[in-house]
Amino acid sequence: MSAGTPQVATPAARLRAAQRVLSDNPAIALTFVFVALFVVTDIVNRAQSGKAFLTPTQVSTTFLYAAPLALLAAGQTLVMLTGGVDLSVATTATTAAFVSSGTAHDHGTGYALLLALAFGFGIGLVNGIGVAIFRVNPLIMTLGISSVTLGALTIYSQTRFVALVPNIVNTLGSSRFFKYVPYDLLVWAPIAALIILGLRFSGFGRMIFAVGDNPVACRLAGVRVWQVLLLVYALCGAFSAVAGILLVGFNDAADLGIAAPFLLPSVAAVVIGGTSILGGSGGYGGTILGALILTVLDSLLTILNASQALKQILYGAIILALAWLYARTSSGD
């Protein structure tokens, strides 16, 4: 059914057209879900404690909280667009948190931040080497790297205790300017713009989609698939490191579990945002909304006194339900 023909649309056809628009632009539905969830949280909060949730401060807090998750999910989006998944984002972020707070005192803030980013990039590069060159299943490669990193971090945290979170990192991770604008937006927004524009307009961005869609065709067309994968995993590590720096700024201290609760949400945010798990379709815009939705959902569950266990079960169920939904809509076409 082409766009020009239906002059007198039947209700069924109109419904189908609406479905089509929604599945082509998940951002519309997601924005609606985000706002609706905010209103529901507001109502629940009013009922529980008599205070409003729909305030400028809470909106700004939501963005403040969402930034680390959205940055972890940024790398995850790129990796999932190529048809992989990165389960080492949380430990990479933890590494960056430890490195940036552990070396700032002796070597200065700039050095510490650069070193943290280099560590993130390096860990991502190792993932990339395994996946791109040795063709290890991404899941197993990243899970293995995350277990190795966690072991190394445990040793590091036992031997070194001097930890100082630089002031600028603290400010970036937890403060706001103009009363309502979180400083971490200054980090998140440029990266988000870079990813969204890069995916759409750069050759590398198009190659990411192409590799995810059909790696064999890509190889036959002369794309060096392994180079694309290598860079994508390395970038994912670097973005995770940025998230780790923001997290340590927010928490004011690094600990081994600082980023672990964000691992599943980072995958969930990408899936909610409409990026296909099989790779090849999606984008970062949806992921941002996914991260915002999960942050509000987390607030709502906290207000409702839900345990960590219940949250985990719920996140698992959400991923499953949405993956199922997206699988149905894409196979129906």
Partner: peptide
């Protein structure tokens, strides 16, 4: 997803 459901 089931990993997190069972773990929860």
């Amino acid at each position: 997803a089931m990993l997190f459901v069972w773990a929860g």
